[in-house]
Amino acid sequence: MAVSVADNPVLHIERLGKRFGSLRAVDELSLEVRAGEFVVLLGPNGAGKTTLFQMLTGLFAPDHGTALIAGNDIRRHGTAALAALGVVFQQPTADRDRSVLANLRFHARLHGMPASRRETRIAEALDAVGLTDRARDRLGTLSGGNQRRVEVARALLHEPKLLLMDEASVGLDPASRADLLQRVLDQCRHRGLACLWATHLVDEASEADRVVVMDAGRIIADASPERLQDQARSTTLADAFIALTRDKPAMRMSA
């Protein structure tokens, strides 16, 4: 049964900014993502997508602005915000020397999941990504696509309200990319999970509820894929993206 998009935003970002020296990596960025919504953050390399995710996960502090995850301010209530967040980073972050099961158990315990619930949730998460039969295998023996699926299972384990996918499909073959995308979409459609999926691959945006185009640290468009094409007067989403980012603004440098 499909879940409808809720009114209250799971992610609320207002005028968030981060600068490195004179470079404004994220510039006055405001954005909302609601429960059940699958939002693609589309931008070329260097647009500031990863910097935004680093701030949302508490790895870097914003210079200004606010970000709330499930109503928790990432600065003032960082641990509560992180508890509501599942993340798949651009670079692999799993222990390749340990089994799939050991990796998931490690994560479950870091999130304080009760022992009685832990094994059930691990079984459910592995089932959701179709890797039940590989649970006892060493992670390093799995293909790149399956390792990514383990990271998705891990990100979903503690039942987050918001899933951040930071170019998680990079390096995967087309079939694995499509599979990963579909599994995450299922979680949004059927579980009410909010997802912010960062990518520079336009084809991953076609099924999104909204496409947020980011360039040079700023949001330059935010609409459904169809509306985005209309706005850019393009016949395909790829053309719309190129049209929107063609006159790429120079990286914003502070005076």
């Binding site: 508490g58 641990t79 509560a80 980073f89 692999p92 972050t93 799993a94 390749r96 994560h107 999130h111």
Partner: peptide, 14 residues
């Protein structure tokens, strides 16, 4: 370097 530090530092604990 292996990325595990990110996982650890994004756990919901101080």
């Amino acid at each position: 370097e292996m990325g595990m530090m990110r996982l650890l530092l994004t756990a919901p604990l101080p």
